[in-house]
Computed example of a mutant assay.
Amino acid sequence: MNTLKVILLLASLSGLLMLVGYFVARGTGVVIALVLSALMNFGSYWYSDTIVLRMYSAREVSRQEAPVLYNAVESLSARAKMPKPRIYMISNETPNAFATGRDENHAAVSVTSGILKILNKEELEGVLAHELAHIQHKDILIGSMAATVASAVVLLSRWAVFFGNDEGKGMIPAIAMAIIAPIAATVIQMAISRSREYEADAGSAQITGKPEALAGALRKLTLAARTTPLNANPSTAHMFIVNPLSGDFIRTLFSTHPPIEKRIERLQQMEAAQKD
C-alpha cells in the first residue's frame, strides 16, 4: 500500500511539473529545468554519503572502538541478507541516527554518541534495523528522484513570473503559479518522505522480529529531540530516524516524518499480530 502511495505521489509531482512547464514554455521549459535539476541532484545522490558524513564530522569506527554498535550492525546485516554498511559515529549527546549511500554496496550507518547512552541493546538493534531497511528499500534513490522533480517545479515556477507576463495580462496567474506550485511540490515531497519512514519501521520489525523494541526507542529519541534538538541542517532532517529539529508550526506542516504516535501505534499493532 505504501509503495503504491509513493508511486502515486511521484506521478503527482511529475504531473505538477508538466503543468507548470506547459504554463511557462509549452514544454521546452520542462526539458531545460528537468535536465538542470537532474544534474544537480545526480551529484548530490552520487556523493551523498561523503557530503552528509563530513557535514556532521562523523568518524568511521571499528569493532575495537565500538564493539556493541559494530556487532549489532554486523549481525543485523547478516539477518537482512545484505552487505554490512560502514559504521560512523557523530560526537553529539543528542541521540539520533541516519543511513546514507546510493546502494547496498556503498552505504553507511551513522549514530550519535548519545544514542548509545539511552537505548538498551534491543532498542539499539531496532534503530539500526530501521536504517538498514532504508538502505534495502533504496530510499536515498527515491528521495533523490522526488527532489529532482520538486526542484524542477520550483525552478520553472520562478520562470513563470517572467514568461507569463504578456503585456501584464499574465502576471496574476504567473505569480499565483510561482507561489502555489512550489508549496504543492514540497508537500508532495514530504509525503513521500513520511511514507518511506513507515516502510523502514516495518522493515525493522521484520529484521529484528521485535516491533516493540523500535517503538520504545522512538519514544526515547523523540523526547530527547524535543528537549535537546540536534543542531542539524534542515536539508538533511529527513534522513534521521526522528526529526532532529525542534517542532514549530511551519516545520510540523511540512514535516519529513510521520507523527511519532502513529509510528508507535503501527509498531504496536505488528507486535500484537505476532502474538496472535
Rank of each mutant, 00 (worst) to 15 (best):
S193Q: 08
A38I: 04
A66R: 02
T252Q: 13
T148V: 06
A237Q: 07
I115S: 03
H130M: 04
I250F: 12
V31D: 09
T148R: 03
W46Q: 10
A215S: 15
D201L: 05
P67I: 04
I183D: 03
M177N: 08
I115L: 00
S12A: 15
F254R: 06
K138S: 14
V30Y: 06
V61H: 06
L230R: 00
L17N: 05
I241K: 01
G203R: 01
V242N: 06
A232F: 01
Y45A: 08
A184H: 05
K121F: 12
I172T: 09
L253V: 05
I260G: 11
K220P: 10
I140Q: 10
R63V: 01
E122F: 08
P83F: 04
E197W: 02
H134F: 06
A152E: 00
Q274S: 13
I140M: 12
K5I: 13
G216H: 10
N233W: 03
M40I: 12
T186Q: 14
I172R: 04
V6R: 11
G27D: 11
S113P: 03
N92L: 01
I142C: 04
Y56V: 01
A38F: 14
R251H: 08
K169P: 02
V154F: 10
N165M: 10
E265W: 04
F163L: 14
A11D: 12
Q268P: 02
K81P: 01
S75T: 12
E104W: 12
E125N: 07
V61D: 00
R26V: 13
L223R: 13
A25H: 14
G209P: 13
D166S: 14
T222M: 11
K138H: 15
D103T: 04
M239L: 13
T256Q: 09
M89I: 15
V35D: 11
R59A: 10
S246E: 09
L155N: 07
T112K: 08
P95G: 03
G29W: 09
I172H: 06
M145Q: 05
T186F: 15
